[in-house]
């Protein structure tokens, strides 16, 4: 099991940031995937390589601004747990952290790398860039 974290500062209020990142069906707007679909506590994400990942959504906590999920029923990923947190930086803006634990280890790197790119894109979108 490997544990990786990515974080980013976004100059928007936690409510604004959570309003975007905390919506599971909007993942494809910022994460490097080609599409996603949500049905209840299930989400399916489509990777550009044509692979689809099935996910269980464990928690969408609008009070703590925490999203918790797992990739499940996957031939490659034997165990996975991911957490997205949006917290106040003490000055009214946001720190977003994405943490993942994964087996095989190497896919933690790959997933966190994608999350890092996604968070950078979310920052550009929310701060008014392209």
């Amino acid at each position: 099991m490997a544990y990786i974290r990515r974080d980013i500062h976004i100059a928007r209020t936690p409510a604004e940031v959570w309003g975007f990142l905390g919506e599971p069906a909007r993942l494809h707007e910022w994460f490097p995937i080609s599409g996603c679909r949500v049905e209840g506590t299930k989400r399916w994400i489509d990777l550009p390589t044509g692979i689809t990942f099935e996910e269980d959504i464990h928690l969408v906590d609008n009070h703590q601004r925490r999203f918790v999920y797992s990739i499940v029923n996957n031939m490659l990923i034997k165990d996975h747990f991911g957490i997205l947190d949006v917290v106040d930086d003490g000055h009214g803006h946001s720190i977003v952290t994405y943490s993942t634990q994964c087996t095989p280890n190497v896919l933690a790197l790959v997933t966190a790398g994608a999350a890092g790119q996604g968070l950078a894109k979310a920052k550009r979108i929310l701060e008014g860039g392209n």
Binding site: I33, L47, P48, T49, V106, V110, G113, A114
Partner: peptide, 13 residues
């Protein structure tokens, strides 16, 4: 990187 299921990198795309 070569291991790139998200096709983030131009070489793989």
């Amino acid at each position: 990187p070569l291991l790139d299921p998200f096709l983030r990198f131009a070489e793989n795309r």
